[in-house]
Amino acid sequence: MTSGDFKTSYKADMAIFQTIWIKLWMAVLVVFMIFFPFWAGPYLTYVVNLAAIATIGALGLNILTGFTGQISLGHGAFIAIGAYSTAILTADAGFPFWLALPVAALITATSGLIVGIPSLRLKGLYLVMSTLAFSFIVQYVIIKWESLTRGSTGMGVPSPRFFGHAIDNDRAFYFLIMPIVVMAMLFARNLIRTKVGRAWVAIRDRDISAEVMGVNLSRYKVTSFFISSFYAGLAGGLYAYYITDISPEHFPITLSIDYLAMIIIGGMGSILGSVFGAMFVTMLPEGIRIAADIFGTSYPVLVDRFFEVKVMAFGLAIILFLIFEPTGIYGRWVKTKIYYKSWPFTY
């Protein structure tokens, strides 16, 4: 009689969903997710869609920053490149969405290579600076290259069509986005279990040691940039389809900070953490909006200065998480699980 979670074969040890309980909960989750948009109203579906798109972007940044340890303040720029590539391919070149989306993601991934290769010599804060500089330059190009991007007026993106049906409402988008999110998560989860993933973690933990052990630094860093920006391109493309009208204002410099906040709040180097973080950061402003609706009469500052309150809550969330829970929501989740598992014994 075994008590506890023991594995008797390599196959069981390598499975993604390891215990019967995890499989059961996964099944429950899938059923819940299928019925969710019918039960929730359009507003809730809208928020969840945005969070799902952000999850893809956060997964990408987590691969680069959380697993490979390359800090990037340029993720927002990749999202913008993905969104604009999708928009241009769909609106101007007439690509169908199932072709435009992957092609746009590939374009973004290639731009990731363009940033990644020169950045091989840069480390730590100097990499932060070069990626920040890159995002300023991308923003400038988007505003100034008017013949391609329509400049600051922005451009419209036609809704994707699937077997003759236009995907143009929140519920239809939900069923377009969710499978992509699930695939993105599974791909990332599997990737970090492979040789590539282990090489990334080795680079993150100590790049010199990794190199001595035979990890080809340039190759794996560039791969990380490539895959990370591929995810960013997917997220950007979906975002462009979803909001149907993109302009440079949708991709401010602070977008990169939003994504960094997601992986910090969610949990660095964790797939589930990316989901938690994306949900938290996307839903925080909506939560404050609800609070403003409820308490607006007694605390008018919530309504009058809604934007500032939102920004402040975001900043405070970053600071408080970094000081009090550096492992993020994922760390808290693991601690809670362990607490219940070992209850009533504390150790």
Binding site: T65, V128, L260, E308, V311, A317, I319
Partner: peptide, 26 residues
């Protein structure tokens, strides 16, 4: 934050900046 990784320290100053910006805006 002493002894925390670079990213945490960079982000905490970004967070501080965000809070200050919102206070100034308010």
């Amino acid at each position: 934050m002493i002894g925390e990784p670079i990213l945490a320290i960079v982000m905490i100053t970004i967070g501080l900046g965000t809070v200050f910006r919102s206070i100034i805006g308010m």
